[in-house]
């Protein structure tokens, strides 16, 4: 079971990216596993929104509510991962973190406790980037720290020079992760997923 962690600030487009990724995995899987992809949805509130949408599209979704998988719900996350591996053994497990989570902390806990590796994909909101960076620099920086891949989202809503400025800003925090420019609501090209998942 390969584990992918989707991180990024609130409203950056994590769920849109997740839907594209899940579709890609299902369409391109060569695995014998009957379940190609399972999803863990973490919401800080008590009411799930994204999980309903994802489940309605036919995916297996486990919920973690009222807390954050990188800290308060880390125990529950470990249990959920174990249960999914035991009961479904999907080819891929996608963990959609909350918008205030530090995905690096999730990766570290999965490695320390479950001895499993995972890959972090962070989604950045190009439309609100400057505003969010001004207001939430510690959180944004912390989210980018351990990203293995970074998707600069909502490029359809901004000018090219804004995207370039966002790229330059991101590389100050993470100079090694490949950057991909996407407009997730319009779909993400398979070539991007080919690169990220290889």
């Amino acid at each position: 079971m390969k584990i992918l962690i989707l991180g990024g600030f609130l409203g950056s487009g994590k769920t849109s990216v997740l839907m594209s990724l899940a579709h890609y995995i299902v369409d391109n899987s060569t695995s014998d596993s009957s379940t190609k992809v399972a999803i863990i949805e973490n919401e800080i509130g008590e009411t799930g929104i994204d999980d309903k949408f994802i489940r309605n599209d036919g995916y297996n979704v486990e919920n973690l509510f009222s807390g954050c998988a990188c800290c308060s719900l880390s125990g529950e996350l470990m249990s959920a991962i174990n249960n999914i591996e035991k009961n479904m053994n999907p080819e891929y497990l996608i963990i959609e973190a909350t918008g205030v989570a530090f995905p690096g902390d999730i990766k570290e806990k999965i490695k320390d406790i479950l001895k499993k590796d995972s890959k972090i994909i962070v989604i950045c909101d190009s439309k609100r980037w400057k505003r969010l960076l001004n207001a939430m620099s510690n959180l944004i920086e912390g989210q980018l720290d351990f990203a293995d891949n970074i998707l600069i989202n909502k490029i359809d809503l901004v000018e090219k020079d804004v995207v370039e400025a966002v790229k330059e800003s991101i590389t100050k925090f993470n100079s090694t992760a490949p950057l991909y420019e996407v407009a997730a609501t319009n779909g993400i090209d398979n070539s991007i997923w080919n690169n990220i998942l290889k």
Binding site: G45, T47, G67, L139
Partner: peptide
């Protein structure tokens, strides 16, 4: 409507 707090965020949810 339930209120939660986390990392400076105020979360109001319900229905």
């Amino acid at each position: 409507i339930e209120i939660h707090f986390h990392e400076g965020a105020i979360v109001a949810s319900g229905g």
